[in-house]
Write a protein that binds this DNA or RNA. Structure first.
Length: 547
RNA sequence: GGUCCGAUAGCUCAGUCGGUAGAGCAAAUGGCUUUUAACCAUUGGGUCCCAGGUUCGAGUCCUGGUCGGAUCACCA
């Protein structure tokens, strides 16, 4: 196939070469040459650190510096002045000079970031991934710091370095803040540091990365693209902003739980039995023990063992794994928040859940209403509807399984506003306590928003004998071919026999909640690295036709 | 797994009836050097996803495959 095929055969394995991974072309050739020249100029093109200044009171990231009052005020004043000018006209020199006086008294600033625009003349923008700040370099007015401890390169070499910087390189600069003739707050570079090389070219500055496959496989590139985009003809959150909202929502949930006395725990992800939910597991093998293990489908039974042990309020926020279909709302691994509270029942849990989600929406988005697709979702008030009422007048004609099916097919997708569906049939709720007034009904709810199930909670069944019988019913269903029926966990029954306090618990699908908060229509848009088929190189796909 | 759609330069995309592979951005070279996505000029850059077929001739038509997207089914 190739001339050097025999040579490749001699290698212990067919390791791809560097050039097969970072494919050379006219773009990358230039960058490789520039890198080689930087090694000559600064000694080490990949230094270990760069210390940023702290004029803003915190480390001067570009975002922090731009938010720092004197900088923000100067930018604001210039923007106001510019708004009154003809396009292309320059702001009055008096204002500019006054602002420059103020900015200069702040002293020397040291910032770092990625070169966000192609070098054109003396100006370039740096980005910290989030905000951009312009820097200005004038031949003869700055030096190039060496990364090997030697004295700086002087003007001539510094200017050469400036000219061979590539779009995407990481640099640090030392200098002073000033306002340009056109009124943009910038850093006048006095010392330039080369910090790291972009050997691969940057995405299009206007369009970014459009290919959904590349966005997901190479999320780093998607994130870079969103930080480099020039015009925010913004319809929707950038990738960066989406994951910032996700982080805020999660930290708000954690804070809410901790403020209410919950402690975070971690329970096994690899377990001998996959139970605690109705789902198919991933199977793996432990070599030393020579036993099969399963990736957990839910932490539920472990968390309730902790209630038995005396932890009254516990939560776990982590991944579950289910070996099932992939869809816009299903990823094989997904993030679930589960928590349990002793001495609380299903109604208390609904109240608590409602308030917690409301806080999270507020903290993540700044408001209580969220635009999603064509709907406006109001998190101000959650409805509560009995399942039989939701299904309507046909409810009486159906048994439990049929009722659930009618609900899922005809009602679920209509539940746009946050809605707790309550009074689930007991037969489909094997871990849930039965209602004291109606033994066919479980003290259980599910929360639906925009037609998606977001949470599932109930009064926890704590009678060990009844729990055993529920498991036994599940085992019979399994015998009949229901391969998602729940598996008996003997130790869990044993744990309950020591006495578990009355308690309520809930699981909240974090990815789905984040979809709602970010107006994303695919779970893959709110998971940084969603599951994808492995990427195969050409040679492999030609040889590996053994399916 | 079913159905529909897609894959062309580093990126974003055109490509007519089957007849020499195109643009913008990005890159290189030179000019400019307080500019605001796009300054001026010149130049280079292609496995048209892969394999096969039809044809004098395939980016284009046909078959199979790979990967992805949308949607349906199951699941949270």
């Amino acid at each position: 196939m190739h001339a050097n095929f025999d040579l490749i055969e001699l290698l212990p394995m067919t390791l791809p070469t560097f050039d097969e991974i970072v494919i050379p072309n006219d773009q990358t050739e230039a960058r490789r040459e520039h890198l080689a020249r930087f090694v000559e100029l600064v000694g080490n093109a990949y230094p270990s650190k760069f210390e940023r200044s702290a004029l803003s009171g915190n480390e001067d990231t570009i975002s922090n510096l731009k938010a720092f009052a004197p900088v923000a005020d100067a930018a604001k004043e210039m923007a106001d002045v510019r708004a009154t000018l003809e396009p292309g006209a320059r702001p009055p020199a008096e204002i500019k000079d006054r602002l420059n006086e103020t900015l200069k008294t702040l002293g020397t600033v040291r910032i770092a970031g990625r070169i966000a625009t192609p070098i054109r003349g003396n100006f370039v923008h740096l980005t910290d991934g989030r905000e951009k700040l312009q820097i200005y370099a004038k031949k003869g007015q700055f030096t190039l710091a060496r990364n090997d401890g030697e004295a700086d390169r002087e003007a001539e070499s510094a200017w050469e370095a400036w000219q061979i910087l590539d779009h995407g390189d990481l640099v640090g600069v030392e200098g002073y803040l000033f306002v340009t003739n056109t009124g943009e707050v910038s850093v006048h570079v006095e010392r330039l540091y080369f910090l790291s090389k972009a050997l691969s070219p940057m995405p299009d500055k206007m369009h970014g990365i459009e290919d959904a496959e590349i966005k997901q496989r190479q999320r780093y590139l998607d994130l870079i693209a969103s930080s480099l985009k020039v015009a925010d003809a913004d319809d929707g959150l950038s990738t960066r902003e989406t994951f910032e909202v996700r982080a805020k929502a999660i930290s708000s949930l954690r804070r809410f739980l901790e403020d209410h006395g919950y402690i975070e725990v971690e329970t096994p992800m690899l377990t001998a039995k996959a139970t605690g939910a109705a789902a198919k597991p991933f199977k793996t093998h432990h070599n030393a023990l020579d036993i099969d293990l399963y990736a957990r489908i839910a932490p539920e039974l472990y968390l309730k063992r902790l209630l038995v042990g005396g932890f009254e309020k516990v939560y776990e926020l982590n991944r579950n794994f289910r070996n099932e279909g992939i869809s816009y709302k299903h990823n094989p691994e997904f993030t679930m928040l589960e928590f349990y509270c002793a001495y609380m029942d299903v109604n208390g849990m609904m109240d608590f859940c409602e308030e917690m989600i409301r806080q999270s929406v507020l903290n993540a988005t700044g408001g209580l209403t969220v635009k999603y697709e064509r709907n406006v979702i109001d998190f101000g008030k959650f409805r509560r509807i009995r399942m039989r009422d939701a299904v309507g007048n046909k409810a009486a004609e159906h048994n439990d399984a049929e009722l659930l099916e009618v609900f899922e097919n005809e009602v679920e997708h209509t539940l746009v506003e946050p809605t707790f569906i309550i009074d689930y049939p007991k037969s489909i709720s094997p871990l849930s306590k039965a209602s004291p007034t109606n033994p066919q009904i479980a003290e259980r709810f599910e929360l639906f928003i925009n037609g998606m199930e977001v949470a599932n909670g109930f009064s926890e069944l704590n009678d060990p004998r009844e729990q055993y019988e529920r498991f036994r019913d599940q085992a019979e269903a399994r015998e009949r071919g229901d391969d998602e029926a729940m598996v008996l966990d003997e130790d869990y029954v044993r744990a309950l026999s020591y006495g578990m306090p009355p308690a309520a618990g809930i699981g909240i699908g974090i990815d789905r909640l984040v979809m709602l908060l970010t107006n994303k229509h695919s779970i893959r848009d709110v998971i940084l690295f969603p599951h994808m088929r492995p990427e195969r190189r050409q040679e492999e796909s030609e040889e590996g036709e053994t399916e």
